[in-house]
């Protein structure tokens, strides 16, 4: 299985870490944030990296999943898994309805429309306080349990989120190497040529938009249960921008690029905390510098360098 060797290595590392370091803050606390961010970045990369459709509002679907779980379990006493499913169904419906008109747009217009969607949803979280608890949010979600086992510790959450994260990465890798993935890349490369190859471009874009929103919604539900709390802050315009940054930082179109981008951006605040007020400044500077000098992204640039080096050695040995 050469195709999945990178994935297997990655999965092994992720699953062994908490066994070696069960009480390490960076593994079992920061690790959870990293996993959520990886899931979101990988799902956004399906849309942005594969299909080439920018979205500045991905946090909206993440937030809708989280709020659906919080509201349905606390206010309506629904079973957490049913609430997650209901949230997912709502997000799928909403994203499907919006996908056609939104994805007809290109470039800056698409950026504007997705940004607008993200901001409207965020304002709704803040303003509809009867339902969402307003700026204070909602706390006290019921414990999620799986096959009778309550997920009530950081280590248990580690394995739950890690499994979903690995599943997302696997799905993303599988899609890249398939008819569906090639159709997305074709849309990215030339929409007119894609159409001439018989690809219903509007449908393909709409499907990946919905799929990516669905992944984010489930991540949101899990996040709400894990944090035991939801508030509008977690789903703001800035978080959408951060997600885009993760994808671009690692390298658009590469699943592991998204993974690495999410990883770096998740631990950055932990590292930058010593700089206190400089955090925002440094974050902005990194974003600019990477985009100006390594527009293909850290991971992809590195991968290309290694590939070129290996090719050079092969040439040399001939």
């Amino acid at each position: 299985m050469k195709r999945l060797s990178g994935f297997i290595l990655f999965a092994t590392i992720c699953l062994i870490l908490p066994i070696i370091f069960p009480d390490n803050y960076y593994v079992t606390v920061v690790g959870l944030t990293i996993f959520i961010n990886i899931i979101l970045a990988v799902s956004l990369n399906l849309l942005m990296g594969y299909a080439g459709q920018i979205s500045l509002g991905h946090a909206a679907f993440f937030g809708l999943g989280a709020y659906s779980s919080a509201i349905l379990t606390i206010k309506y006493g629904l079973n957490p898994w049913l609430a997650m499913l209901a949230g997912a169904a709502f997000v799928v419906t909403l994203s499907y309805v919006l996908s056609r008109p939104i994805l007809k747009l290109k470039g800056h217009y698409l950026a504007m429309a997705t940004l607008g969607l993200g901001i409207i949803v965020h304002i709704f979280f803040v303003q509809a306080d009867e339902l969402t608890g307003g700026p204070d949010g909602i706390s006290g979600l019921p414990t999620l349990s799986f096959l009778g086992l309550a997920i009530d510790s950081d280590v248990k959450w580690y394995f739950v989120l890690c499994s979903y994260m690995l599943l997302s990465v696997l799905f993303s890798l599988n899609i890249a190497d398939s008819r569906a993935g090639r159709a997305l890349s074709a849309v990215h490369g030339s929409e007119i040529a894609a159409q001439m190859m018989g690809i219903n471009t509007a449908k393909v874009k709409s499907h990946i938009f919905v799929f990516s929103a669905l992944m984010a919604s489930i991540a949101g539900s899990l996040f709400a249960h894990q944090q035991d709390f939801v508030s509008p802050e977690s789903f703001s315009f800035f978080f959408s921008i951060e997600l885009v940054t993760m994808v671009v930082l690692g390298g658009l179109g590469s699943t592991f690029g998204a993974v690495i981008g999410a990883f770096i951006l998740s631990i950055l605040p932990e590292v930058l905390i010593v700089f206190e007020d400089f955090e925002v400044l440094i974050f902005g500077a990194i974003l600019m510098v990477i985009m100006i000098f390594l527009p293909e992204g850290l991971f992809v640039a590195l991968k290309n360098k290694v590939a070129a080096f290996l090719a050079g050695r092969q040439e040399g040995s001939k």
Partner: peptide, 27 residues
């Protein structure tokens, strides 16, 4: 040409109509 893909992948896109796997099956 789809410049973001390699040569065989470009041609595989051409086979789109002669194959049928959907997004979920592919994932």
């Amino acid at each position: 040409v789809f410049l973001n893909m390699n040569v065989i992948e470009n041609v595989m896109v051409g086979c789109h109509l002669r194959s049928k796997s959907g997004l979920i099956a592919s994932a």
